[in-house]
């Protein structure tokens, strides 16, 4: 399988007088699962939006296989993004959402998923918050694209579903690059191949849990 490389650097993002991101370099290859940590307001979501192309800072350079993209999401087959605030309109039926996002080869797997199967004819708006997040996460992860960005995919999801999501993410990361962030850091520590902490606008490489403790992100 051909490897692809996503890179972002030269980022300057300010909100008013406040510098959010200033010295960021991040790369992700297909087959990798990368975790981003950071305190509230550190710029995790902003960084994902910058990569996706829905947000532009004073400067940024987003490249796939060394090719610059101004608005990556408008290019076909490259990227999908699960925003923290949710993705699907409430009046859309689950089955239709699956058809919109997922290619024919993966549709059956999602339609037969034990959590989704009983709800495929329901509208997204009637699903519980956790099930909606689970559905949205699977739609993005099973999309036929090279890279996937997930902003808080485990928040509001029950522990048992988090375990299921982890296995889906691991399975899909074999063929695509996944960058995800969540304050539920334990699942991220379990499944990620590489980790970064965003601190004072910069990305700092993290090797293990102790580094997060040393940098004051979590308690000992």
């Amino acid at each position: 399988m051909t490897k692809h490389l996503l890179e972002i650097d030269s980022v300057i993002l300010r909100y008013g007088e406040r510098d959010i991101l200033s010295n960021v370099y991040l790369k992700c290859e297909t087959g990798e699962l990368i975790a981003l940590f950071g305190r509230n307001g550190a710029g995790k979501s902003s960084l994902l939006k910058l990569i996706f192309g829905s947000l532009h800072g004073e400067s940024q350079s987003v490249r796939i296989d060394k090719k610059y993209h101004h608005q990556l999401y408008t290019t076909s087959g490259n990227i999908r993004f699960l925003p923290q605030s949710g993705l699907l309109p409430g009046n859309l039926k689950v089955a239709k959402a699956i058809n919109f996002f997922v290619g024919p080869s993966n549709r059956a797997a999602l339609m037969e998923d034990p959590y989704l199967a009983p709800n495929v004819n329901e509208r997204v708006g009637v699903l519980s918050g956790g099930l909606k997040k689970y559905l949205e996460c699977l739609l993005i992860v099973y999309s036929n694209v090279k890279f996937v960005l997930l902003d808080e995919p485990f928040t509001h999801v029950s522990p048992i579903m988090v375990e299921v999501l982890k296995s889906h993410l691991l399975k899909q990361s074999a063929g695509k690059g996944i960058i995800l962030t969540d304050h539920l850091y334990e699942p991220l520590l379990d499944i990620s191949h590489r980790m970064y902490l965003i601190e004072q606008g910069r990305t700092v490489s993290i090797e293990q849990r102790d580094d997060l403790i040393a940098r004051g992100y979590i308690n000992p």
Binding site: F52, Q71, S76, L87, F100, I140
Partner: peptide, 9 residues
């Protein structure tokens, strides 16, 4: 974001 993800700017 729903439309962005489906390629519509």
């Amino acid at each position: 974001y729903f439309y962005y993800n489906l390629g519509f700017s």
